[in-house]
């Protein structure tokens, strides 16, 4: 974006949801210290997600070419149900725990505005296609980790993390399918409307 001064079909809605995901998940940087790595990575996640949102909102060139009439997914349709579910389905009814659970549920669906935008914009830019592919792959690798830990560690069970991570990965499934086919047939990636 910085280099070409254009948003490449990246959905601002999704970027804002990700910023909210990390803001609600990493509240513990104020309460307890786990390790230097832990706090540094959290600050990187927060810094990068908020700077993308800031850049897309503030930078005059990016903002002008960002197609806001296409990226119209209403956040609240995702935020409200996730908040409600986090209030009902959590492991401990404390503020931190509910916020953390909310961030997991929200992360599972945060990609939806981006996928909708990709369906609407006919020609998907390579950069954006790769970006979404890697976001999905990151999640898929977590599932491999969970399987390994379930098999090797006694009582390693995290239903909330597993279910939201699984749903998140499933949302990418059709994108992976079309991405693979466009790569195999060496065609431009297009998602059916």
């Amino acid at each position: 974006m910085r280099h070409q001064n254009q948003p490449y079909g990246v959905s601002l809605k999704t970027q804002e949801l990700y910023a909210l995901v990390f803001a609600t998940r990493y509240l513990d940087i104020f309460t307890d210290y786990i390790s230097l790595y832990n706090i540094v990575m959290k600050l990187i996640y927060l810094g990068s997600s908020f700077s993308i949102v800031w850049y897309m909102r503030r930078h005059k060139l990016v903002r002008r070419s960002y197609d806001k009439e296409q990226d119209t997914f209403r956040h609240l349709f995702l935020i409200v149900p996730c908040l409600f579910l986090a209030l009902v389905l959590n492991e401990r009814f404390t503020f931190m725990e509910v916020m953390w659970t909310f961030s997991l549920y929200l992360e599972a669906v945060a990609i939806l505005p981006q996928l909708v935008l990709l369906q609407r914009t006919r020609n998907i830019d390579n950069l954006t296609g790769q970006y979404v592919l890697l976001l999905g792959a990151y999640r898929a690798f977590y599932i491999l980790n969970w399987i390994y830990r379930y098999l090797t560690e006694v009582h390693y069970v995290h239903w909330i993390t597993w279910m939201s991570g699984l749903i998140q990965t499933l949302l990418y499934a059709d994108f992976f399918y079309y991405y693979f086919h466009s790569w195999k047939n060496n065609e431009k990636l297009q998602l059916p409307a």
């Binding site: 513990d28 786990i34 832990n38 959290k42 492991e91 931190m96 725990e97 953390w100 659970t101």
Partner: peptide
């Protein structure tokens, strides 16, 4: 819960 999970999963 977030306590035991946050240690190994960002």
């Amino acid at each position: 819960s977030s306590a035991d999970n946050i240690k190994d999963e960002l």
